[in-house]
Simulated scan of single mutants.
Amino acid sequence: MKTRVLGTGGPRPGLHGHVGVLRPRRRERAQLALAWLLAQGDDVVPIPGTKRLAYLEENAAAADVTLTAEQLDALARAVPADAVRGARYPSMSEVER
Rank of each mutant, 00 (worst) to 15 (best):
R29W: 03
L22W: 11
Q71V: 07
Q71T: 05
R85E: 14
P13H: 00
L37W: 00
Y89F: 14
V5G: 00
V65G: 11
A74V: 11
M1P: 14
P24Y: 02
K51N: 10
S93H: 05
A61D: 14
P46H: 05
V19L: 15
T50K: 11
Y55G: 07
L53S: 02
L32M: 09
R23C: 13
I47C: 01
L6V: 10
P80N: 05
T3A: 14
R25N: 14
P90A: 02
L15G: 06
P46W: 00
T66L: 07
P80E: 03
K2A: 13
A60P: 08
P13K: 07
A63C: 10
I47G: 00
L38K: 10
L32S: 10
A81C: 04
A35T: 10
N59W: 09
A35Y: 06
T66K: 07
G20V: 06
G14E: 15
E58R: 14
K2M: 04
R29Q: 08
A61R: 12
A63V: 14
M1Y: 01
A60M: 08
E57R: 15
D42E: 15
L34M: 05
G49A: 12
V45M: 09
M1E: 07
G10K: 06
L38D: 12
A81N: 05
Y55T: 01
R88E: 06
V19K: 06
P80F: 06
L37Y: 04
A62H: 07
S91E: 11
P80K: 08
G7Y: 04
P48W: 00
P48I: 00
R29V: 14
L56W: 01
G14Y: 06
A74H: 08
S91Q: 02
G9Y: 10
V79Y: 08
R52D: 03
Y55M: 02
P11T: 08
D73E: 15
G9C: 01
L32A: 05
E57I: 03
E70A: 15
A63Y: 02
Q71N: 08
A61P: 00
R29E: 13
M1T: 14
E57N: 09
K51V: 09
G10H: 07
Q40M: 02
